[in-house]
Design a protein around this nucleic acid. Structure first.
Lengths: 160, 160
DNA sequence: AAAATACGTCAGCTTTATTGACGCATTTTT
DNA sequence: AAAAATGCGTCAATAAAGCTGACGTATTTT
């Protein structure tokens, strides 16, 4: 037993070695994803504060523009949040005139969601800096490389 | 002027066409990043609820393990949050024995942060499912392709 | 000796999310 | 036709995570 071991060395042990790519753990890419996403969302965040909206509003505006006529249930599944979380955000967007609801033509219980012109403009304004960032990250990349990156990102998704 | 235009057509106009890759806006990659990150963080989230911790704790544990001896100021800059946001999270991790502080040897105002053995184990447990997901997304990819993806992710960061 | 720095903390607030329950209109099943 | 299920909105209570601003202490720099 080592002498000079101040109380409970085993339990209070401090590790000074950096945790690096080791075993099968890829810390490098984990970190790259963190930083990439952190900066990726920082662009629209700056625009959103001006309108008094947040990230959640952004997501809703984005997906409703991408797929007009989607239902509330569709949106909940896409965002993977609860109905109650969506409620306030959606209400604000409707009240502000960015999104409107229409009763479903076949199933009238459904509320189909559509962007207004203002809603489309907002979606475009938010996407613009993100898209510029993506273009910058792809700078000089071949079409094949771009496809590889997309394939990687698709592979990161949980297959439904 | 069109007849049969119910009140204010221009202002309440509903857009039914999906917003697609158009002009210079790359909606496809924007969405891929959203879904990739959403699922990427869902893995550790499930582990964290068991310990009563959240995503913020994860980030702190991760970076302190990656760079033992980092200061509180380093961490704030990396995470891009405020001191007060970090305070509660860091305190909980210290109180729970995952992280410890040591006064800086040169500058004793600094608090250098180190993981304990438990803190390292937690970081590894959280990284494991994320790393498996990354490996799956890279399946069959050449070394060159992997490098391309990393280059893309680095390019997404705001240059400091 | 004075100023600046690194850190912790107090107090109050906002946003975003959660769970659970209920009500209404409508559609599907029995 | 009646009963059950579905899509949606809402109420109430709560939690996690972030924010701003201000101040105190120890320490280092000027």
């Amino acid at each position: 037993m080592p002498r000079q071991t101040s109380q409970n060395a085993a339990k209070t042990e401090l590790l000074e070695t950096p945790l690096q790519n080791a075993g099968s753990i890829d810390f490098e890419v984990i970190e790259l994803l963190f930083f990439a996403y952190r900066d990726f969302v920082s662009d629209p965040d700056q625009i959103l504060v001006k309108s008094g909206f947040g990230r959640a509003h952004h997501r809703v505006v984005h997906f409703v523009n991408r797929e007009p006529g989607m239902t509330v249930a569709n949106l909940l599944e896409t965002l993977q949040i609860t109905k109650q979380s969506l409620a306030r955000v959606l209400k604000q967007l409707i009240d502000s005139g960015y999104i409107r609801q229409v009763a479903g033509p076949e199933d009238r219980r459904q509320r189909k969601l559509y962007p207004t012109r203002a809603g489309r403009d907002l979606a475009l304004a938010l996407a613009e800096p993100q898209s510029r960032r993506i273009e910058r990250a792809f700078e000089g990349a071949s079409e094949a490389t771009r496809e590889s990156v997309k394939r990687f990102l698709r592979g990161m998704q949980t297959e439904k």
